[in-house]
Design a protein around this nucleic acid. Structure first.
Lengths: 253, 253
DNA sequence: ATATCATTATGTCAAAATAACATAATAAAA
DNA sequence: TTTTATTATGTTATTTTGACATAATGATAT
């Protein structure tokens, strides 16, 4: 190998079975106890965390690679996945530092000088996820968005960019529903939106606005169990949702 | 222009000076005579057209590569550029067909079986562009969006995706202004929006809505010269624009 | 000079969407 | 039965949108 080895998340796939110098990072978002959470991996024998991700096989599409990685880390198949940005800067982090931290894991010759990463965010139902580490890590865990530690590589920035993209997208598509279980209550949905948008919403206006989208169905029964008035249960109606999407009901400007 | 550059989504960057199996495609959009236009290249000795693009140098960021390519094809430096999608399917076009069409230009050994492409759209001022072919092409020309021929590779689909992304973005950001000269009239701006959105707009409502954004300045003088009432001239005010962006005035949902 | 023509600038009103606001109902626990 | 936490919901004023038509103007033709 010439004088070009170092790198990124992408370890020089010793196998040429992977696209060289290209990787993929996934921001897997879940919602639990009124908090947005993200799935992180702890590298073997360290306290260093990073996002799930990895190289792309020659035999799979980029999207398929994202689904594969998500399947490996969460056990889930059907996931809402959104490509949101390519990270292609020349210097994306302090490489010598990373190499030092991870040298016991990866032969330095296996690093690329540089890799480009495609960022995806995934919205998943928290309770269905079975967090599973990969070959380089020994722990896969949910972290509250607000408590994310310093991550390896440029992953803190990638998470930030993903959240921004999510906030933008949720303004015109009710994608938040992908984060909830099939049945949910209006207050739960509101708290999810508040977590994503990071600001409080008025419950009356929220209720009206969400229902006006015509993509929710209310069940006749309420949920019992709390020391309070029992809330109605709702369900996301995929068909109605798609009908709404068709209309492309964006206003200009 | 760097030696050995270009193009296509799938030519083996003969040198390791480029990121392998990764390319970049640019949809350069301009507006002229009430039409949206896109810059296309005709391959040497053929009637085959494709988008500007090419591989990324090891020594440049992905964004820098996009700017470099745009500079090479248009002569312009300061360009509004937006990364909008990665095209990463396994099979993006009929490779044998392409190889046949272009075999006189490129040694088949230099083709990759597969490459991933990062799509950018660029919004430019039509009259400032100096269309310039690259090493593989002998013509660089504007085409009306509605008259784009069958392009090489998956470029027709990429153009379509770019337009969709543009239409989406123009709904919440007044980016269209990048397509006009510094001074423009309200009807010109309206016709631009109509071209992008592909539907007629009411001039009174358009006027009201655009001005309400508070990013335009009206000049005291009007433009003379037509056999009709002379229109006012406007200018895009960058400062005001940025002030508005800060507010992040997106409604939720 | 005047008429004609193409184009531009602009206002009103009804309907819809938004934002701001408070209280009664209820399930469980005390 | 009282208390507590939480949920469901309605009204009004304001803002935004959408639908609609006409008068003004600059050039050209007569």
């Amino acid at each position: 190998m010439p004088a070009k080895e170092k790198q990124s998340i992408a370890i020089k796939a010793a196998e040429p079975a992977y696209l060289p110098q290209l990787t993929l990072d996934c921001i897997v978002l879940g919602f639990h106890q009124d908090q947005l959470r993200v799935l992180l991996l702890r590298w073997k024998g360290t306290q260093e965390w990073s996002l799930p991700g990895g190289p792309i096989q020659q035999s799979e599409s980029v999207n398929a690679a994202a689904y594969r990685i998500l399947k490996e880390r969460t056990g889930l198949d059907q996931i809402y996945l959104q490509q949101f940005q390519v990270f292609g800067d020349l210097v994306r982090y302090n490489l010598p530092e990373i190499k030092t931290k991870l040298q016991h894991l990866i032969n330095p010759e296996l690093w690329y000088n540089r890799a480009v990463s495609i960022g995806y965010y995934a919205l998943v139902e928290y309770s269905k996820v079975n967090p599973t580490p990969d070959l380089f890590t020994d722990e896969c865990q949910w972290w509250e968005i607000k408590e994310i530690p310093n991550l390896l590589f440029d992953h803190n920035q990638i998470v930030e960019a993903a959240l921004q993209a999510l906030r933008q997208q949720i303004n015109w598509q009710p994608i938040g529903l992908n984060l909830l279980p099939e049945q949910f209550t209006m207050p739960e949905l509101q708290r999810l939106y508040e977590a994503i948008l990071n600001r409080p919403l008025d419950p009356r206006n929220f209720h009206r606005k969400i229902l006006s989208l015509n993509i929710l169905e209310r069940f006749p029964e309420r949920r019992k169990g709390g020391a309070f008035k029992s809330p109605y249960l709702y369900r996301f109606n995929q068909e109605k949702y798609e009908a709404v999407l068709q209309e492309g009901n964006l206003s200009f400007l």
